[in-house]
Structure formats: C-alpha cells, structure tokens
Design a protein around this nucleic acid. Sequence first.
DNA 1: TACTCTATAGTTAGCTG
DNA 2: ACAGCTAACTATAGAGT
Lengths: 234, 234
Amino acid sequence: MMTKGESTDCSAGSSTRRLMTTSKRVDGEGCPRQERREGGGVEFSLILKDLSDSPAEVSQLRRSRNMGRVKLKIKRLENTSGRQITYSKRRAGILKKAKELSILCDIDIVILMFSPTGKPTLCLGERRMLESLEVLKKTFKKLDHDVDIQDFLGTRYGYWTDPDNITNIDHIRAMEESLKDSLSRIQMQKENLSKQQLVPLEITTQFHSGIHVPLGMFGEQQPQPNSWLHGNNG
Amino acid sequence: MMTKGESTDCSAGSSTRRLMTTSKRVDGEGCPRQERREGGGVEFSLILKDLSDSPAEVSQLRRSRNMGRVKLKIKRLENTSGRQITYSKRRAGILKKAKELSILCDIDIVILMFSPTGKPTLCLGERRMLESLEVLKKTFKKLDHDVDIQDFLGTRYGYWTDPDNITNIDHIRAMEESLKDSLSRIQMQKENLSKQQLVPLEITTQFHSGIHVPLGMFGEQQPQPNSWLHGNNG
DNA sequence: TACTCTATAGTTAGCTG
DNA sequence: ACAGCTAACTATAGAGT
C-alpha cells in the first residue's frame, strides 16, 4: 500500500542488444521446426542505440521497418478492431498459460471469457486427464482394440470439451443433471449454514464442502453463444 | 494434427547478449520506482559467451551466482514444493494477464483454479465495473457521502468477490437463486433442442441463448474451500 | 479475419535471504 | 511460504500480407 513512487519516468531506456532468440514452439513438448532468418535484428538494435538520444528519430526508424513491440498502457482500447485483435492474441496467450499451469502443477483450472462481441470461450484444464488419456491410449493400442478414447470418456467429460456436441440432447441432459447436483449442494450448504448461524465465525468458514462453484453472475448479459467451448488439449 | 517435426534438437543455443532491461511495474498504470543495480548482469553475459564452448563451466558459473531462468519442459513437476512454488508464481502471472485482458478489451472473464493442495481461487474480471466504480466513488465523494461502494454493489457482486461473506445466509440464498436460474435456462435450452432435433446441424448451433455456464464438473473432488475468492482489482 | 514477422516488453526458473 | 534477484524464455504490438 501507499503510493510507492508515482509518475517516475518510465523510459527504462535500457540500451538493449541481442542476437535474436526467436524461439517458437507449438506445444509444451518437443521443439517443432526452428526456422529463423539470421541477421536483421542485430544491426537495428545497434542503430537504435546510437540514436538513443533522439527519440523522434528512433520512432521514425521504428516505423520505417516492421518494427517490434511497443509499450502498452493497460487501459481500455478504444479502437474496436484493435480490441478484437488484442483479444484474440491475448486470449491465446492466457489459454496456453492455463494449460501449462494445469500440466506443470497438476491442477484443475477453468477459464471463461467473453469476447468484445460477446462470444464466450470456456477452457478446461484437465488435470491428470491428459496423462490418463496417454496411458489409456497405449493400453488400448496394446490390446489391439479400436476404441475411441474420446467416446470412452465422453460420458463424463465430452460435453464440456467438445464444441460440436453441445447440441446433443444427451449432453444437455447431463449438464442439467450436473446443475441440479450443484443446486442441491448449495441448498445443503444453506441448511448447514442456517444451523450454524449462531456459532462463532471462525468455525462457520469450515462448512463449505465441495460446492460446485456455479457461475451465474452474468445474468444481465445476452451473448450469442455459437461455439463457446475451447478444449485445450491441442 | 500429424507429428510436425518431433524430437528435433531443442537447444536454440542463440548466443545472447544484452545489457539488462529490468523493467518492473506494479499495476498497469504508472511506472513505480525503477531501481536497478547497474552492472553485474552485463559482464556475466559476456563471460558466459566467452565460455560458451564449455557447458560445464557455464553451468558451474551459473550456479555460483544467483543466475537466471532455464528452459522448462511442460510436464508435471514431480517435486511437490516446486509444484507449489510454480503454481504461486504462474497463478499470479495468469491473474495479471486476465486482468489486463479484461481491461484492455473491456470484457468479462472468470478464472477458477485449484492449487496443488486443493485450495480454490476464483478470479473475476470486472469489465466496466472498474471504471464504473471510479465514477461512483468520485460522485459519492462530491456529494460528501460516506457510502461504502463495496456495500452498495454487494447485493449484486459482493458474494462472488468477498471471501468472508460466503458464510452469509443471504449470499447463499442469492447463489441458490442464480443456480436455479441457470437450471431453468439449461432446461429451456433442452426444450429448444428437443424441438430442433430433426433440423440440419448448422442451424441447431444457433439455439444457445445466454445460458449461464454452470461449472459443475468437479464433482468427485473435495477441496477445503476456506478463502477461495480472489478479486483482481489491485 | 487470420497469419507472418521483428524486436522488445513482460514472465518466470532457480537461488538466496 | 514470501520477497528479491538475474537472465533466459516467451508473449505480443504494430505493421505487412
């Protein structure tokens, strides 16, 4: 807390020079093709350094080529299409990070977001599911079976991860069941709470047992969900 | 799909050299203090470069100081405490990015995740709420009122953002209502779908209207939700 | 709209205190 | 667990295609 130094000059300046590191990867696993055009960046950095006392020139030069990233103030982007583009890029970034996190730390994670146009995206980390899938696949391969894993697991997870199947009546039913379950749980919790209303606070915080975390706070919004599910396993 | 180049050598190598860029910020706004110890990193990079033909020496030198990041394979971290630490760091990163995204693109976003120990974190982007809050605050200030904004908005958003109030019976009731609402919506959707069962596919995908996205897929898990809410406004 | 490219802004692994 | 540090790694703004 406190204002720890406000409006200090932000230009780190930081005469940076490097020889390119363009790393590119597709998944968190191997290191798919690694093409990169040598040269190009180095000299420019040096030029920039030499011009570093002339911000205008730097800016000019920067624009004359297809130059790199600039600093961005975290404030609502007023340009509509810019907002859309930034959303796409950053959404991809966040989803990737979420997937990494879920794998690295072996955790469950759910992300729900709405694009500037209202289109929802739901991303589910899958915890041990990924590994289990691998094992299952191998097992089935060995048994020379031709079982579709996705189908095998579909009953439990399919309708949360497959964007197309959302229109399947069975999946809707399953979701309905899940919702009812959530409801009964929260009602149970309500009951518990009612009984505990007169008990000291530090105890009452112990009575939430596995509620399903319903996310119904976007009541006033009316998006047009077309394909609103985004599996993150590929 | 396809294996697009598997097990290619991943060592980008990339003899990198730079002169430090240590940028640091606290929020997406100003640029709070910018102390950084000049020197130290520079020579080391050069030293590393000179030693680059001797990996062992590099590694040794790297360990002798408190050196930087190494590449990480995206695979479950086997070390328990390491998993915990990584979780903390990356969670912070994701939450920050989520907040930035919600502000930049003016969107709603929700993130729910469970730590390796099962502790849940819920993060709500607040879309225009943040700006609205500012306006409200100023308005109230001008009117010389002493209204607590949080309380003012609490009826609608409070129980989703305040970890302590989760034990309040009214909030539970509100959540119950929200859940019921979600349920009725999904049931409506089910109805719609039933009627459309015989209609071509490309049309049926248009019939999801503003369902509330219930997240009840963590049924078999039993975390101990103590303080499971994480507001992301500072 | 989506993809590519460059170079930089920003994130974070491994240590240390 | 938490905060700080350094440098390597990664995401991404802006512009082109």
